[in-house]
Nucleic acid binder design. Structure first.
Length: 165
DNA sequence: GGAGTGATGACA
DNA sequence: GTCATCACTCCA
């Protein structure tokens, strides 16, 4: 799954002359039309249609009237799936990540690229140790709430081969 | 544990 | 048009 590949990658934001960077440390996968935890399980709607599109596009939405959540669309066209970026190194929680990177829903349906001002870079982090667990905040999702689709980066090695927690 | 907050989607 | 719900965060 693509979710694993995101851990240890860097999220890069360009806004004005400022660049904000952080390593992705926690993600959650929302996969397929039947995943009751996924917004896509209610079918294609104006908000979620981007999840049914091509991979590599941002899906950003507002929850609880105040927090934005950042997701990247994965999988093939017409098969809805996205990865929620829950944490970046030293920034915990999807709402706080969006605040830190100045992300709001204007970025939704943009592609992950320099042109959009928000993209992902591989900066050579390797030997990642990944832990999986249940997703957060999806108790309503019946049997889907048990899926171990939340992945956290436990440990990795930097460019000089030093372990980092 | 509980409030804040407003877009979204379902239904009429 | 109404209404309930919500992939969260903060404070007690």
């Amino acid at each position: 799954m693509v979710a694993k590949e995101l851990l240890g990658k860097f999220l890069v934001r360009r806004v004005g002359k400022k660049t904000i960077v952080g390593m992705i440390t926690e993600v959650e996968a929302y996969v397929g039309p039947d995943d009751k935890a996924s917004h896509a399980s209610r079918g294609k709607t104006p908000r979620t249609k981007v999840m049914f599109g091509r991979a590599g596009y941002w899906y950003v939405y507002l929850v609880y009237g105040m927090h934005h959540c950042l997701n990247i669309v994965t999988e093939k066209e017409s098969y809805p799936a996205a990865i929620l970026i829950r944490s970046v190194h030293s920034v915990s929680g999807p709402g706080r990540v969006s605040k830190y990177f100045h992300i709001d829903k204007k970025l939704s349906e943009r592609s992950s690229s320099r042109a959009s001002g928000l993209w992902i870079e591989d900066r050579g982090v390797r030997d990642v140790k990944i832990k999986s667990g249940k997703r957060i905040g999806v108790d309503y999702a019946g049997r889907w709430k048990h899926k171990p689709w939340r992945l956290t980066l436990e440990q990795h090695r930097d460019k000089k081969n030093h372990p980092i927690v």
